[in-house]
Design a binder for these strands. Structure first.
Length: 491
RNA sequence: GGUCGGAUGGCCGAGCGGCUAGGCAGAGGUCUGCAAAACCUUUUACACCGGUUCGAAUCCGGUUCCGACCUCCA
């Protein structure tokens, strides 16, 4: 098997993957800010990095996968008074901030479980690592790359730029940034405190209304945007580790700032490989809470959305995401989802045929050519759409054998079975449970039953209609009659 | 205004110098009492204008559209 080639945003080119420590990989992925329910935009990164993680594990690497939970310190983007996001929601909902964070964390993890995304090896919370963040900020101050003003601490980009390259990841330079700063894309509190508009906050002084605040050498406050990832990745993966993943929208400023912070504090490039996935778009625009065009994961599963005529299972969603390369945008629509679902079902029905395929002494079909093609595609910057295309070719061959037009040997059939399971379930991580069709089947059956019962009622055959209702009740399903028709629910 | 990335058939989406991507939809067929499902076969592309080349969706230049980001929203 040849080696994995991965696109490194740092350097903007494809590079062979080599781990720092033989057969071990440290991987950090920026996790969610838990201030809202998970939507489609949250789903792609976890799936993509889950496949990368699974593939590295498949290649016998021992992977430590760290994904944080951001539960403090971030400000609301759209015009407001700079309240902490979590605090704002908490006021709205009359709950403790941590209660809100916990609830959304649970929802997020539930969605990840549904999508068969493996839980991280470590899932650190920003709120649980304030001390580490303070220590790192102090270290940056000590090195001369940060300064304190009125209880807040800012990173000194120009001081840093004298020795290092601020912009090495995003390809920006400080002059451009200052030129662009005049566009008034946003007005931020505390701008006038900074030496330069390029400087970013490491620690913010808290106003008395802030519920979430911690004691620091600079007074009461809360950590800035970017420091948590730097502090936590260093704590659990070391000052230098293998892979840092995230969405392309995080490239600047978040990841650029992480690099600057880590180099300042540790004198080390934090990550060897920076891997960025592209966004899911809807009508050509990225899906984000701030744009208010998000489809919640639960809305997708249940079909409760104006763009959806019915629900789609997590399995379909995962397949849909993997049918596009992670670095390209993926445009969402029900039509596209429908296409993925049908293809996926066809593929799975072929997989289901393998075990019962009739075998012969000699085989007239091949498997090895596809097998190597699949791993070539995986090694080629995780080209999952190509992998899936090859899987469809395999499905076609399975059907041909099943139709008796070609033959397969026992060994080859076992090989095929193993290959399909390795690739489809273990590496692509497709959920094994048949969530989609079982739910759809139930819907169909229930529609049939309620139709029959409606006819019975029209014919005043209440004996039959009541019998149906009673039997369903006994089976745990309640029917509810109304003027509009009959609805049902599972008790 | 700056930085970066896109424009592929009805839809989603690979390819990145010559070779059918793939899926869905459409068409034809096999099967079937009729359907459905399943399976087989198959039509339709490379934003525009120049250039390089024996040969370009793929390389170069220009044009037009679209998107992301631009520091205290991951």
């Amino acid at each position: 098997m040849s080696e994995l080639i991965i696109y490194n945003t740092l350097g903007r080119k494809l590079e062979p993957f080599k781990s720092l420590v033989p057969q071990k990989v440290g991987m950090y992925v920026c996790g969610p800010t838990v201030y809202g329910p998970p939507h489609l935009g949250h789903v792609r990164g976890p799936i993509v990095f889950d496949v990368l993680r699974r593939y590295l594990s498949f290649k016998d690497y021992q992977v430590r996968f760290v994904r944080n939970i951001t539960d403090v310190g971030h400000l609301v983007g759209d015009a407001d008074e700079g309240e902490d996001k979590l605090q704002k929601q908490a006021k709205l909902e009359q709950l403790e901030p941590m209660e809100v964070a916990q609830s959304y964390t649970d929802q997020y993890n539930w969605a990840m479980d549904q999508l068969n995304v493996q839980r991280p090896s470590i899932e650190p919370k920003a709120s649980g690592h304030i001390i580490e963040q303070i220590e790192m900020i102090q270290s940056i101050i000590d090195k001369g790359y940060a300064y304190e003003v009125n209880g807040s601490v800012y990173f000194d980009v120009s001081a840093y730029s004298k020795k290092h390259n601020y912009g090495e990841l995003s390809g920006r330079n400080t002059e451009d940034l200052i030129a662009g700063a005049g566009n008034e894309s946003r007005s931020l509190e505390g701008q006038e405190e900074k030496k330069s508009p390029n400087d970013f906050a490491l620690w913010k002084q808290a106003t008395p209304e802030h519920i979430m605040q911690w004691t620091s050498p600079w007074g009461k406050g809360y950590p800035g945007w970017h420091i948590e990832c730097s502090a936590m990745s260093a704590k659990y993966l070391g000052e230098s580790f293998d892979i840092h993943g995230g969405g392309m929208d995080l490239l600047f400023p978040h990841h650029e700032c992480e690099i600057a912070q880590s180099i300042s504090a540790h004198n080390n490039e934090p990550a060897r490989y920076w891997v960025h996935h592209n966004m899911i778009t809807i009508n050509g625009q990225k899906m984000a809470k701030s744009l208010n065009n998000g489809i919640k994961v639960t809305e997708l599963f249940e079909g409760q959305h104006p763009l959806l005529s019915r629900g789609f299972g997590p399995k379909t969603l995962r397949f849909f995401v993997l049918q596009a390369h992670y670095r390209g945008t993926l445009d969402f629509s029900e039509e596209a989802l429908l296409a993925s679902e049908k293809g996926m079902k066809r593929l799975e029905s072929a997989i289901g045929l393998i075990k019962n395929l009739k075998t012969s002494d000699s085989a007239t079909i091949k498997v090895d050519d596809i097998k190597s093609a699949i791993f070539d595609a995986l090694n080629d910057d995780l080209n999952t759409p190509i992998v899936i295309a090859h899987l469809f070719e395999l499905a076609r061959r399975i059907q041909i054998v099943n139709d008796g037009k070609e033959t397969i040997s026992i060994e080859m059939r076992d090989d095929l079975d193993q290959l399909m399971h390795q690739v489809y379930y273990n590496i692509l991580g497709m959920p094994k449970i048949n969530d989609d069709s079982s739910q759809n089947n139930l819907n169909e059956v229930m529609n049939l039953v309620t139709d029959i019962r409606s006819s019975a009622k029209i014919e005043k055959n209440y004996e039959l209609s009541d019998m149906i209702r009673d039997r369903l009740k006994a089976a745990g399903i309640t029917l509810m009659d109304s003027k509009e028709g009959t609805t049902w629910k599972i008790d």
